[in-house]
Design a protein around this nucleic acid. Structure first.
Lengths: 129, 129
DNA sequence: CTGCGACTTGAAGCGCGGTTCAAGTCAAGG
DNA sequence: CCTTGACTTGAACCGCGCTTCAAGTCGCAG
């Protein structure tokens, strides 16, 4: 029923040390013990997948920890999530442009490649000037 | 003609210390000196914008350094850029899903919000299980 | 000549996200 | 019983991307 930490580590792709680290950070908690060994409910795997996704998206672990406890009444937290959504949207746009640039790089003949106007153009404007 | 490091720092949004750090990493180089002060051509601003973009996209500085020198004959490097393109594509997909989840969170009534099936669904599948 | 302020250097420090280490504990197997 | 092997703990360490610090150097204003 409960999964041993080794099991969870293997299935989630995280090291046991990482799971303990996440526990210290308040991201997960063991649902039981097998001797000294931590044991987790299978739902923890979903939670870890969620954490991995958010982390890959550039969220700090501390930030994820607060989001994980979010309840519908947390107006302030909701606003922060909305702000994050806008942030992620921008990131998607930026990454899309970067992807296009990389795609172009594959067929570009400029030397060096980064000097290609088309390559640079896709990266968006220089901050100011 | 050449821009003082302070000028470049201000326009790029990077600290002078960061510019020196980038120099040590081989990402940029000063085109002259004003006494001891580094001076840069305006093109450096473009280069810095490119670096910022790549860095925000999750590229390591060392990786960016190799890409910056990429020439059309670098077959291996080209392949790595192509690999990066696929990676970035995946990331775009993932972030798009995350954005949708966050968007939903703004109107979700689940308590806690992360337990919402719709929220979780958008995050993609659990690795295995 | 005397500040002043913004730079220079190398080296040390920081926050993040973990990993690694030393020493100890447990469950199962022979 | 004793070993084996995977875990436990707290603490130290690591790589990355910078920042900060101490001590020194420059250009310029007064």
């Amino acid at each position: 029923m409960l999964l041993d930490i080794g099991e969870v580590a293997q299935r989630s792709g995280l090291a046991p040390s990482a799971l303990r680290f996440y526990e210290r950070k308040g991201l997960i908690m063991a649902d039981g013990r097998n001797g000294l060994r931590r044991a987790y409910t299978p739902e923890t795997l979903e939670r870890l997948a969620l954490i991995a996704c958010a982390r890959d998206a550039g969220f700090a672990l501390a930030e994820i920890a607060t989001f994980l406890g979010a309840r519908p009444s947390d107006t302030e937290l909701r606003e922060r999530m909305a702000a994050k959504e806008r942030e992620v949207s921008q990131r998607v746009d930026q990454l899309t442009r970067l992807r296009d640039s990389l795609r172009h790089a594959a067929v570009c003949t400029h030397d060096p490649i980064v000097d290609c106007p088309e390559f640079k153009q896709a990266l968006g404007r220089v901050p100011s000037g």
